[in-house]
Design a protein around this nucleic acid. Structure first.
Ligand SMILES: [Mn+2]
Ligand SMILES: [Mn+2]
Ligand SMILES: [Mn+2]
Ligand SMILES: [Mn+2]
Lengths: 218, 218
DNA sequence: ATTCACAATTCGGCATTCATAATTCTTTTA
DNA sequence: TAAAAGAATTATGAATGCCGAATTGTGAAT
């Protein structure tokens, strides 16, 4: 079995590489896990010995096939629990991440199977992120950033690129949720802010910081 | 915050004392947690420093008020999760204990509150054990052991004294579940086995090992 | 009162995980 | 190409939790 710590490292390495295959820096991992580079090096040696990563000193690290599958299974659990919290326990989408961060480490395979069934085999989590299957496959949605949409075009919100509670609460405040229709009215060249219309109601201005973190249907 | 290990010690001490107040032996704790006495002594020093137990070297240990409440909150979570697994995820009552042993350590208070609500504020877990309230109160059922019932009297199964999968599976096999009505037909003096009738159907013989682990309504 | 049994503790040491500081390797830049 | 900068690694050591062996305390038996 793997410790919580090992699992968190594996997940971090997965998220820092594009699809778990590219090389990742020690410092990047340290920052992602809010720890120090020396601790990362220690753990990489250990994960390498366990066969979960390919690691060459001073060169970088990437996940092995086994490590990649483990990462996807942890992410699967994380996202299924997030769906549970929102759909069944009425959590808001900004309240689920931290709790799922703990629940993702529960080991029972039967639990994951039954939870998936109980939730109706969801394909996406409350932030629009795809839920990997048992074998690690994910349905990626065709999407682009709101920031990249043309003036006078519309789209549907498919997900967010940032699941920080502060950001999610702001989206709640201005009425943006998954499935909402957004039309780009104008693009202000000065600061790249966008004038948008949400669900044919409010027309408001959002900064590029915001529009770069919202995924829209193509 | 408390580590999983600390929480498991606190729970073990609670279960070994009658209601969390009586003194408990070092060796008893070691056996309950499948560890060694030397490790227990180490931990007792630590729990004492944290104010969770009253500990006097060579004399014994008991929970402080704070420790008792912590124990009851962990037991509350354990039993609520067991209800979830059985009622919502269709686990059998012999499959839930191990998983709940992990889930009981998840820290979110909101999660426990919402789970309780989602489950309809259950008062007993799948084994008939009472679920403590947020403040640590429990409804104890009036009950006695099946082994102590008189010949020709009937009662309803309220709980089990042993939640081992092997025992629970055996009860499934012979048709004993919570709420089942059992009538004592005969008591065999030779080995204290009982001839019982379950739900006015099967009449079978059960050993005293079994009858001493089933709680019945008075 | 002394001995004995055994319960409990202390001691030394191992494995994890993390951190600081010193060192080494790689890459950039002059 | 050599020096400087930056990234990563190796000491070294702390805190946690575990254990075997040696020691100490307690209560019961003689
Ligand atoms: Mn985690
Ligand atoms: Mn998510
Ligand atoms: Mn536990
Ligand atoms: Mn139970």
């Amino acid at each position: 079995m793997h410790s919580f710590t090992e699992e968190n490292y594996i997940k971090a390495i997965f998220k820092l590489s594009v699809n778990g295959t590219q090389d990742v820096n020690t410092n990047a991992i340290a920052e992602a896990l809010d720890t120090k580079a020396a601790s990362v090096t220690d753990m990489l040696r250990k994960l390498s010995a366990k066969g979960l990563v390919h690691y060459v000193r001073y060169k970088g690290v990437s996940l092995s096939e086994e490590g990649k599958l483990l990462a996807l299974q942890i992410i699967r659990k994380h996202r299924l629990w997030e769906v549970f919290l929102v759909d069944k326990l009425k959590f808001n989408w900004d309240e689920v991440h931290e709790v799922a961060e703990e629940l993702e480490h529960i080991t029972s395979e039967l639990l994951v199977k039954r939870l998936d069934e109980f939730l109706g085999y969801p394909k996406f989590d409350p932030h629009g992120d795809p839920i990997p299957s048992e074998t690690g496959e994910m349905n990626l949605k065709k999407q682009k950033l709101l920031a990249e949409m043309e003036i006078n075009t519309s789209g549907v919100v498919l997900g967010v690129n940032d699941s920080q509670p502060l950001f999610l609460k702001f989206l709640d405040k201005i009425g943006i949720s998954l499935g909402a229709t957004i039309k780009v009215i104008d693009k202000i060249e000065f600061d790249n802010s966008l004038e948008i219309n949400i669900g044919n109601n409010n027309t408001i201005l959002i900064s590029s910081e915001v529009s770069k973190n919202i995924f829209m249907s193509v």
